[in-house]
């Protein structure tokens, strides 16, 4: 559960609650982005997600490298992606 998974911001869903839709490996779910807002956040930006929260902005190169590394984890990444898929943050 300490994994940080990279995702790309697809849309801002609820500005007041700091909720954005973020695409992780094709799975799009709502994530709280409040912790990274001071850095500015736009659609298309990459963030590192942990338990439904963006904890850090990252660049595309880092995101691709991390995703490659996580995919090598096989089952563990599949589980993390399943967990992300199960989320219904509003």
């Amino acid at each position: 559960m300490c994994l940080g998974i990279p995702g790309r911001v697809v849309s801002i869903e609820d500005e007041a609650r700091h909720i954005a839709k973020v695409d992780v490996s094709g799975v799009k779910r709502n994530v709280n982005v409040g912790l990274v807002l001071p850095d500015g956040l736009d659609v298309g930006d990459w963030v590192l997600i942990h338990v439904g929260f963006a904890i850090s902005k990252i660049d595309e190169e880092e995101a691709e490298a991390t995703l490659g590394f996580l995919r090598e984890m096989g089952e563990m990444f599949d589980q993390e992606l399943d967990d992300y898929r199960s989320s219904g943050i509003a």
């Binding site: 338990v51 439904g52 929260f53 199960s86 989320s87 219904g88 943050i89």
Partner: peptide, 14 residues
């Protein structure tokens, strides 16, 4: 119940 995020737990509460 399993949750991915504490915000999912909050949603279940609402």
């Amino acid at each position: 119940r399993f949750v991915y995020s504490p915000l999912d737990a909050l949603r279940i509460a609402t």
